[in-house]
Design a protein around this nucleic acid. Structure first.
Length: 647
RNA sequence: GCCGAUGUAGCUCAGCUGGUAGAGCAGCUGAUUUGUAAUCAGCUGGUCGGCGGUUCGAAUCCGUCCAUCGGCUCCA
């Protein structure tokens, strides 16, 4: 007998060779029907696989992320089986589970396939699912594995197998489909009750641009039809939050083919919003000891040759601009740092001057591949809320702390709660590919880790992800559809001070090399506004929103009073509009609600007589009449609450 | 850049298998003077993404280019 410890710490005795499914059955039949896979001593395995020794076991169902992963991974196999039956000769790449479902990369050969084929495939999948095909695990030798796929003519699988050590190869067989797979899988396909193929896309084999492009089909499955229905509703809701749609509806920004792709045009309301964000950050930065600077949008190519950006961006980006002078070339700036380095160099610096913090809302231009462009999140001309801190190696930690506090302040003022902090360190096994001394790297990396710890941030540490010039910390936020976008970034740089030969005189009267920290709390104004739009669904915080209130006179008779209210509010710096169209109140309210204006102020006979306004809050409804002065006070309070200490 | 899909009025969309365009909203004009999510009537508005081809005839079929969307690669 072996001892099985369950999550509630209870211990049960079972014979050797017991399966997860057996354990579930011994607890309850209902549980057994819902077990998708089991976690045995921290490793997920098939519910039907035997357990030979004492272990702690967790039974995984649809409510566990690992259970979902098992379901979706098995679904990928099932889809492959369906496709193999429908499209003989299709070859298969890889088919993993992902955050919301699964995909399979398939080479359809000369056959073409589009989303029109989805219903047919979905039907086949459900048909096979109902057969309750068991997923059978089989250990095979490398030779045997290669022989199988050679016979089948699937070169992708052969390539995968060749990279695997012998003795670790397993096959899973379900129905007529056999796949190279580590598992784990469902006991049988009967658990899959609802399926939806989501989209179809090209994907390079093994993510390599130079290799063949396979057809990737994304899908998702559920144990109940109802769950699929709910998921589809959720998708629809997410689409409504798309910043491209909201940006158009709220008249914030636009694109024009004539201006050029990836070059956003900020409309008046969007420009105002952006300006407000900039003012907010400038205020914060001023308090934190930053100095604003300004630089032109182009620079002599020599500047970028010195910085190394010409080598990086020169070929794949906007071409240099030539001038009437033979051999003279300018380059649209892809980065602000070289300019700031030159500003640093305008006078000799002492250690007493450091840190020097130069900030600029600097617009940069990068020629992104056309297919990468995406609304405001990926554009060809964008404005970074950039700053460069020049400091001594000893100051790196404090400066990092200061920047992190700014990022946190912003996230708080804008109510971003769900973000990921990634720390990118150098690859410890490959230290020579990084520039800068071992000692300084060590210092900076520990500083970053310590600061993150002191501020109580949960972080993801990724060794080997650092840039060659220094370690960094990035802040990522998800958009409405769960896609991750990097916003703020803080990067230590040992490279540019070297290239620009930056120095300061230390207390020892010797020349020293300063460390440079690049930082952009928003990342870029464009991307930040995009993510903010999706985050708030267009219901911006009151301090930020373009129009804070709108006065709605019941009829033309009350226009004079309405205008009086309008002036009072605007004079109190509450951004207020008036709707003096010849429309009924219901219509005006509907329109204002759709424009997401926070406060609707209805005025008619009653209000005029009593010097009040009837306040309606967006999304909340009628709040009743208040005196105009009281409303002004209320709004001002609400704004200072939102901004907290910054105001 | 690559794979797939899409492109009709300012916006959202109809327009079946080819017979030179239609609705709702928005806009304009007028009537109405209105109390918490759409008052009524009339009118304006489109080289059906661009170019080429097939055809007596193309929004519709074919080719090509452009743009957009979903991915891949890449990145703030």
């Amino acid at each position: 007998m072996i001892r099985i410890t369950l999550p509630d710490n209870s211990v049960r005795q079972y014979p050797e060779g017991v399966t997860g499914l057996d354990i579930a059955k011994s607890i309850s039949e209902g549980l057994a029907r819902n077990v998708l896979s089991v976690m045995v001593d921290g490793t997920v395995q098939d519910a039907t696989r035997t357990i030979e020794k004492d272990a702690s076991v967790r039974l995984l169902t649809w409510n566990d992320p690992e259970g979902k992963a098992t379901m979706w991974h098995s679904s990928a196999h099932l889809m492959a089986e369906a496709i193999e039956l429908l499209y003989p000769g299709a070859k298969f790449g890889i088919g993993p589970d992902v955050e919301n479902g699964f995909y399979y990369d398939i080479d359809f050969g000369s056959q073409t396939i589009s989303s029109d084929d989805f219903p047919k495939i979905e039907k086949k999948i459900l048909e096979l699912a109902r057969e309750k095909q068991q997923y059978l695990r089989k250990e095979v030798s490398k030779e045997e594995a290669i022989r199988y796929f050679t016979r089948k003519g699937d070169e992708y699988k052969i390539e995968l197998i060749q990279d695997l050590p012998d003795g670790s190869i397993t096959f899973y067989e379900s129905g007529k489909f056999t796949d190279l797979c580590r598992g784990p899988h469902l006991p049988d396909t009967g658990f899959i009750k609802a399926v939806k193929l989501l989209n179809i896309a090209g994907a390079y084999w093994r993510g390599d641009e130079k290799r063949k492009q396979l057809t990737r089909i994304y899908g998702i499955t559920f144990p109940k039809q109802k769950e699929l229905d709910d998921f589809l509703i959720l998708l629809e809701e997410a689409k409504k939050r798309d910043h491209r749609k909201l940006g158009k509806e709220l008249e914030l920004f636009a694109f024009s083919q004539k201006v050029g792709l990836g070059l956003p045009l900020w409309l008046p309301r969007g420009a105002q919003l952006r300006e407000r964000l900039e003012m907010f950050l400038k205020k914060v930065q001023k308090k934190a000891g930053y100095q604003q600077v300004m630089c032109p949008h182009i620079g002599n190519v020599e500047l970028y040759k010195t910085s190394g950006h010409y080598q990086k961006y020169g070929e794949s980006s906007f071409r240099p601009i030539s001038t009437p002078v033979e051999g003279e070339e300018f380059f649209l700036k892809p980065m602000n740092c070289p300019h700031h380095c030159e500003i640093y160099k305008t006078s000799p610096r002492s250690y007493r001057d450091l840190p020097i913090r130069l900030a600029e809302f600097g617009t940069v231009y990068r020629y992104e591949q056309s297919g990468e462009l995406h609304g405001l999140t990926r554009v060809r001309g964008f404005t970074q809320d950039d700053a460069h801190i020049f400091c001594t190696p000893e100051q790196v930690k404090d400066e990092f702390k200061g920047v992190m506090d700014i990022v946190m302040l912003i996230f708080k003022a804008l109510d971003f709660k769900d973000f990921i902090v990634q720390i990118s360190l150098r690859d410890p096994n490959n230290k020579e590919k990084y520039i800068g001394s071992d000692e300084n790297w060590e210092k900076a990396e520990t500083a970053i880790m310590e600061v993150a710890g002191e501020r109580g941030l949960t972080t993801v540490v990724v060794p080997g992800e650092a840039a060659f010039y220094g370690p960094k910390m990035d802040f990522m936020v998800k958009d409405a559809l769960g896609r991750k976008w990097q916003l703020g970034t803080i990067q230590v740089d040992y490279n540019l001070p070297e290239r620009f030969d930056l120095e300061y005189i230390g207390a020892d009267n010797q020349k020293h090399r300063p460390v440079m920290i690049h930082r952009a709390p928003f990342g870029s104004m464009e991307r930040f506004v995009a993510v903010l739009l999706e985050h708030t669904a267009g219901d911006f915080p009151l301090w930020l929103t373009p129009d804070q209130a709108i006065v709605l006179p019941i009829s033309e008779k009350y226009q004079d009073y309405a205008k009086k209210v309008l002036n009072l509010l605007n004079n109190s710096e509450i951004r207020t509009l008036i709707d003096d169209r010849n429309e009924k109140a219901g219509k005006k309210i509907r329109d204002a609600e759709m424009k997401k204006i926070p406060y609707m102020l209805v005025v008619g006979e009653r209000e005029e007589n009593e010097g009040t306004i009837s306040v309606r809050r967006h999304g909340q409804g009628d709040l009743g009449p208040v005196k105009v002065e009281d409303f002004i006070k209320k709004v001002q309070e609400e704004i200072s609450n939102e901004l907290g200490e910054i105001n």
